[in-house]
Design a protein around this nucleic acid. Structure first.
Length: 250
DNA sequence: GGCAGCCTGGTT
DNA sequence: AACCAGGCTGCC
């Protein structure tokens, strides 16, 4: 099945980190970028040459004459393109995902974390619990909520779950506004880098001072992923009594 | 639950 | 040459 060949795009949807291009005839192309997948738009007449690792290309005709070629590149090939026959199939496909992280509520997050003894960071990365958070933003959100990544997921106080849900929404909103986090590969469809990496509070900053308290940030593998946190702001054993307000850096 | 494995490229 | 990386699946 051609990947939407001949289709007119009706709408683009997103849930968590998955993208869906819905055609007027009902076909759906589901896109998972993985770690290095990217869409790249080459305007007609552009001198840009397709680079390596192009796995799909679409000739596109825009409404306002912005024609060109849309490429799907993915050097590491962890991403994927899947076609579905209908929006109903898309809904079933996405039923396996948890609530979307951009709008996660404390109550919905509490449901996902309840009863689990695994590390809260592992739960945040589990797309069935929460859809849309990866390694960078899991660390950033945990820092924002002052929660140690190894705390048992089901052991959060209500105020901590609330702070964590807020931190997830906030860090994602701010990252999106900055165009995302470019470490090496990430670019938007016009080739622009994301500027949020320079504002990471913890990710990629192990061994440097915490922006909130000055303690040296610690690196530790959690849930098989590199994890950076502040051992002082994010205590392994939460202090009994009043919680300090979450700290966000700019 | 943890973990290897899928790939390539950049860094040490 | 070895190690590391933004994600996810499937096997123990």
């Amino acid at each position: 099945m051609a990947l939407l060949r001949g289709a007119t795009v009706a709408e683009i949807r997103r849930h968590g980190k998955q993208l869906a291009i819905v055609a007027v005839d009902g076909r759906v192309l589901v896109v998972q970028l993985g770690m290095t997948g990217q869409f790249f738009f080459v305007p007609r007449g552009s001198a840009m040459r397709p680079r390596d690792h192009v796995h799909a290309r679409w000739m596109v005709a825009g409404r306002d004459g912005d024609d060109g070629v849309m490429l799907f590149r993915d050097p590491r090939r962890f991403g994927g393109l899947t076609t579905l026959a209908s929006v109903g199939a898309l809904q079933r496909h996405w039923a396996t995902l948890g609530p979307d992280a951009l709008t996660i509520t404390a109550d919905a997050l509490a449901v996902g974390l309840a009863g689990s003894r695994r590390a809260v960071k592992a739960a945040l990365l589990d797309q069935r619990v929460l859809a849309g958070v990866g390694n960078i933003y899991a660390d950033e959100a945990l820092f924002g909520a002052r929660i140690h990544p190894l705390r048992p997921a089901g052991g959060m106080r209500a105020d901590e779950v609330r702070a964590l849900a807020e931190a997830v929404r906030r860090v994602l909103r701010r990252a999106i506004k900055a165009g995302g986090s470019t470490l090496n590969d990430y670019r938007d469809a016009n080739g622009a880098e994301g500027k949020f990496s320079s504002r990471h509070a913890v990710y990629g900053r192990a061994g440097t001072p915490c922006v909130a308290c000055g303690s040296l940030l610690r690196r530790q593998v959690v849930a098989q992923r590199t994890t950076v946190y502040c051992p002082v702001c994010q205590p392994e054993r939460p202090g009994a009594g009043r919680a300090r307000p979450p700290v966000f850096c700019t």
